[in-house]
Write a protein that binds this DNA or RNA. Sequence first.
DNA 1: TTTAGCACTCTCTGCCCGAGAGTGCTTATG
DNA 2: CATAAGCACTCTCGGGCAGAGAGTGCTAAA
Lengths: 356, 356
Amino acid sequence: MHEQRAGAANADFVRAEETPLTERQRLILRLIVREYVATGRPVGSRSLWESSGIGVSPATIRNEMAALEERGYLEHLHTSGGRVPTDRGYRYFVAHLMGDIELPSSEQLTILHQFRQIELQLEQWIELAAATLARAAGNVSVVSAPIPQSPRLRHLELVALQPRLGLIILVTTDGAVRQVMAHWPDDADQETLSPLADSLAVALRGSTPDEIESHAVGASALARAVLDQIANALRGMTAGGAAVRHSGLEHALTQPEFSHSAEAQELLALLGGGSFVSAMLPRLEEGPGVRVFIGAENPADELRRLGIVVSTYGVDGEVVGVLGVVGPTRMAYDRSISSVRYVARLMSGLMADLRG
Amino acid sequence: MHEQRAGAANADFVRAEETPLTERQRLILRLIVREYVATGRPVGSRSLWESSGIGVSPATIRNEMAALEERGYLEHLHTSGGRVPTDRGYRYFVAHLMGDIELPSSEQLTILHQFRQIELQLEQWIELAAATLARAAGNVSVVSAPIPQSPRLRHLELVALQPRLGLIILVTTDGAVRQVMAHWPDDADQETLSPLADSLAVALRGSTPDEIESHAVGASALARAVLDQIANALRGMTAGGAAVRHSGLEHALTQPEFSHSAEAQELLALLGGGSFVSAMLPRLEEGPGVRVFIGAENPADELRRLGIVVSTYGVDGEVVGVLGVVGPTRMAYDRSISSVRYVARLMSGLMADLRG
DNA sequence: TTTAGCACTCTCTGCCCGAGAGTGCTTATG
DNA sequence: CATAAGCACTCTCGGGCAGAGAGTGCTAAA
């Protein structure tokens, strides 16, 4: 199989070396992709002829199919098993045949409504995003928590729990909140901690982790311990420590590609191991927009049988996350793309509100 | 099938109506349960004889098996398919045959070590508990976040995001932290909010939601809005709003009971729909300790083919959660019970630290 | 260029059959 | 009387086989 670049740029590559597809070939390819995505069974000339009401005979369809196969858009699993789109076929479909890619506005309203309802519970945003995305796309969804690019401190609270144990609560300029437990070097009750928190909050407002640590020189042992742990916690909010949620496994299980437990386990391992996110994070650099990876276009071997639709979300340059949909190569790319785009926009809007 | 009460009390019921099992019958029942749990295949007299090195012939084993079947501890799926324990058989095993039920101390140390490593990240406790419990028990685990019984306010922070939008951060006396977004009735910047937060923090320390609302009379519009939303958020932390995590689905998928996607989907629906927790929450009333529900002993119909091991955890009367393990009826109850017990103790210890 | 016809291939399903494993019953034995 | 041995019977599982169904490529006709 040839090297392929991801994205619409692929179209140039096709045009450069061969004549373009005829209108009828495009129609047939579109019908095959739609049919195969819907049924999961390889599609043959006769059955396509029956189900589509196309104006030409099965024999003609066969000829066109052979041409499409010749050029790498279809393939032939067994001599008499009907045809199936190749990765390249899906790619062509996504780039040229898919048509309208906005989520139906009724769907948009449903989702919006759900977000309105729990707007206030910050902790649940990611979970809700994962759940709605999975439902809208009809596939497994993966959503990372927003990751501050360069977290700065906005607020700070210290809570005494036990003589030498307490809670540090941080709020960053992005509106993210983090709570960590902390040990003090000496006993400290709430009456000691509160004034310390107040003075540190003022002194550290807008500081980066490095700047926070620089305040440690000359401070008391307690203050030094606190400063250290604040800086660490703040650092922990960047890429490495981001929480990732997935949802909609039930959609995958209904599909024949995952009906055997071995394949389902493999998918589970991918989701649990975070290899999905780590594979996609580098793409964050490429800027905003929805990216599609089909089968062998994926960077990692274990993703070769999957289709992946991802997008970043967030406020440009300040805090970004990644969200996407994963399914078998045979997936409804149009639905997935429109869902991912819509939910990404929605989350970006919410992040913008939070940034203030 | 007869009505059965859960727990060791069952033994009385058996003894009351029939003669006790002979020592050899107990041995054979134990061997059958162990063998069936390990292999998943019905166990026959010859194969049991070969694998166990027991001192009697297959024919004798057959006779004892027939006796055990007669009394409801075993059953016979097909005329020649070997025997399988019934729910009652498992129950007898759990109550009398299981023996040592402490987690091996090497396992204990491993788990403890993992908790030490992330001790500081409060948000990750539940997730870690779910992950380690699943691993230790070799089954799917479910862990609810701790649920404060009667949450009282300990600390309070207000953060301005936009003119009329902000963040309220609460810390309860149990050490739980909650962040909610809030709308103000008038524009309010950080310089307005900080003094308000300070004065409210002092005034409301130790208050219940109702008491907080009672402060609203005669307060400013802004303060009233804040008080309202604090009270609501605090109320939301009790039972209804508790987060639930599960982990270890891969263990279920390796087992033949869930190898078909239909059964796996059913399990997924149970976990996602929260019906597991809602079925088990009433048991919280019965006090601490590990509870085991085997097959038809379960309250809900959809759980009839599952074995469930649950325990509460937390600080008595103040904050409690529930955690447990779910698998096919054919599960390693001894391993599950010891794992659940150990992790529950561990979490209780952590809660006690947090309570301060 | 399109279509009809045809021979061929491959999968899938149902069926049969034999091997293997397990049971219950009957009878022998210490 | 409890245990063991022998035996006929039953049921599942896997392989082999045939026929149906679906699909293809090729050739020839419209």
